[in-house]
C-alpha cells in the first residue's frame, strides 16, 4: 500500500468540476442486449390521463415524451432501453435502463457523471449540454482516471428514475405503443 496525499488535501484549494463518461447510449444498449440485430427508435407520448395514472402509482412521469430504443432480433422484440438524466445536490447523472419483455429491469448502467459547483447545476443551459451526450462531451476528461472519495452520494434519484421508467414502459406496452 502506498498513499501520497495531495498538497491541497489539507488546505482549501479551489474546487474544480469533475466528469466521467462511461458509455454512450448505443454502447449501453448493445451491452444490455448483445443478441439484438437492430435497435428501433420509438417515442412514447403520454397523454394527461396517462400522466395522472403514473402519478397515482407514486411515479410522476415528469415528462410527456419518452424516447425508447426497442431491441430486436429478426423482427422479434427482445426488450427496451430508456436513457434519462437525474439531478442531485451537485451532480448530474445520465443513466440507461434495460427492460426485458417481461417488464422486469434487466440492467442499469450509468452513462455519465457530472460533478459541478452548486450554482451551475440549477442552470438549464448547463444541464442541457449533457442531454443525449456522453462520450465526447465538452467536459470530457480524456484518459484521466480520477475517482471521487468522500462522495456521500446517494443514488436515490437514480433509483426513483428507474421506477419511473419501468412504469412508463409498462404503460406504453399495455397501450400497444411499443408493439
Amino acid at each position: 500500500m502506498r498513499i501520497v496525499l495531495a498538497a491541497s488535501a489539507l488546505a482549501l484549494a479551489p474546487a474544480s468540476a469533475f466528469a466521467v463518461d462511461y458509455l454512450s447510449a448505443e454502447q449501453a444498449a448493445k451491452l444490455m442486449f448483445p443478441d439484438a440485430d437492430r435497435f428501433e427508435s420509438r417515442e412514447v407520448t403520454l397523454d394527461a390521463a396517462q400522466m395522472q395514472t403514473l402519478a397515482a402509482q407514486g411515479v410522476p412521469a415528469r415528462s410527456a415524451r419518452w424516447p425508447v430504443r426497442v431491441a430486436q432480433r429478426a423482427g422479434a422484440t427482445l426488450g427496451f432501453v430508456v436513457v434519462d438524466n437525474v439531478v442531485g445536490k451537485f451532480e448530474l447523472i445520465t443513466y440507461a435502463v434495460g427492460i426485458g419483455t417481461d417488464g422486469a429491469v434487466k440492467q442499469v448502467e450509468i452513462l455519465s457523471y457530472r460533478e459541478s459547483h452548486g450554482h451551475e447545476i440549477r442552470l438549464p443551459a448547463w444541464r442541457k449540454q449533457f442531454v443525449g451526450k456522453t462520450a465526447g462531451s465538452p467536459l470530457h476528461v480524456g484518459d484521466d482516471i480520477a475517482n471521487i472519495s468522500g462522495a456521500t452520494l446517494s443514488c436515490t434519484h437514480v433509483t426513483d428514475g428507474v421506477k419511473r421508467i419501468v412504469a412508463v414502459v409498462d404503460l406504453a406496452r399495455r397501450n400497444g405503443a411499443l408493439g
Binding site: M1, R2, I3, V4, L5, A6, A7, S8, A9, A13, P14, A15, S16, A17, F18, K89, F90, E115, S116, H117, G118, H119, E120, I121, D144, I145, A146, N147, I148, S149, G150, A151, T152, L153
Partner: peptide
C-alpha cells in the same frame, strides 16, 4: 496509482486528495 479527489460537500466541485497504489 489512482488519483483521488474529494467532493466539496458544501458547494460542489472536487479537490485533489491523494494518489493511491495497492490499497
Amino acid at each position: 496509482a489512482l488519483p483521488l479527489s474529494l467532493r466539496d460537500e458544501a458547494a460542489g466541485g472536487v479537490r485533489p486528495l491523494a494518489t493511491l497504489h495497492d490499497g
